[in-house]
């Protein structure tokens, strides 16, 4: 599903050029649950942004669901992104001005799904995530755990093939954190590919495979268990 070849990402200011990613080669298959770990500034989020089609690499190739996308324009990336990828962020990134229902509805809205269908699917997801009773609330009225459930609901409502989670439990207490990890595991078991950036060893335990990054390089790959397609 994901294959990168000699992926590079450089950031240049007037005086300094920083290499965030250097010759990163990874491959992730459909149905995998992969954790990306490493110290701060090692390039985890940069990699996740590129994998999530939010950013382009400076060099190298990136194959996503059979397309070489490293030279895609923002518009092409957006089209591919909205149909295939769901995002879960550390800080939830819900839109404060929208209710729970509207936040979850947003991806379907941008996909051009008809109103009745949107309502049906959003209700299903909210029901499934146990936040149905909060559908008319605004994000600020929810607890952190509930907000992250809503964020997960939003990530999966369009039934993406891939979910990218950037420190999904970073802002949560351990009880709510575990809850979210369980949710991700369930999704993975249902067939969704999950790539998660994390600092937490506990969370990485849920993944099939851990990719360690250091100074923009992949240093090790731990395969925790045999993965069967």
């Amino acid at each position: 599903m994901i294959k990168t070849m000699n992926l590079k990402r450089m950031y240049a200011t007037d005086e300094v050029e920083t290499t965030a990613l250097n010759n990163v080669n990874i491959e992730i298959n459909e149905g995998e649950f992969v954790a990306i770990m490493g110290p701060s500034g090692c390039g985890k989020s940069t990699l996740l942004n590129i994998l999530g089609l939010l950013d382009n690499p400076s060099d190298g190739e990136y194959h996503f669901v059979g397309h070489e996308v490293s030279k895609y324009t923002e518009r092409q990336r957006a089209n591919l992104r909205k149909a295939n990828i769901g995002f879960v962020f550390q800080s939830f990134n819900l839109i404060d001005e929208l209710t729970v229902f509207e936040n979850v509805e947003l991806p379907l809205f941008y996909l051009g799904v008809a109103s009745a269908e949107r309502e049906k699917r959003v209700n299903e997801v909210l029901e499934h995530m146990g936040v149905m009773h909060r559908k008319s609330h605004f994000p600020q009225q929810l607890s952190g755990g509930q907000q992250q459930r809503v964020a997960v609901s939003r990530a999966i409502v369009a039934k993406p093939k891939l979910i990218l989670a950037d420190e999904p439990t970073g802002n949560l207490d351990s009880a709510h954190g575990s809850e979210v990890m369980k949710l991700l595991t369930q999704l993975n078991e249902a067939g969704t590919t999950i790539v998660m950036v994390t600092h937490s060893t506990h969370d990485s335990e849920f993944a099939h495979r851990i990719i360690h990054l250091f100074d923009g390089h992949v240093v090790t790959e731990n395969i925790k268990e045999q993965f069967h397609v």
Binding site: R75, K82, F87, E97, Y110
Partner: peptide, 16 residues
């Protein structure tokens, strides 16, 4: 900016 970022991540086109 954050709102724009989220919307774009979720799939909003610029014209939208």
């Amino acid at each position: 900016a954050r709102e724009v970022g989220i919307r774009k991540t979720i799939g909003a086109q610029r014209k939208q």
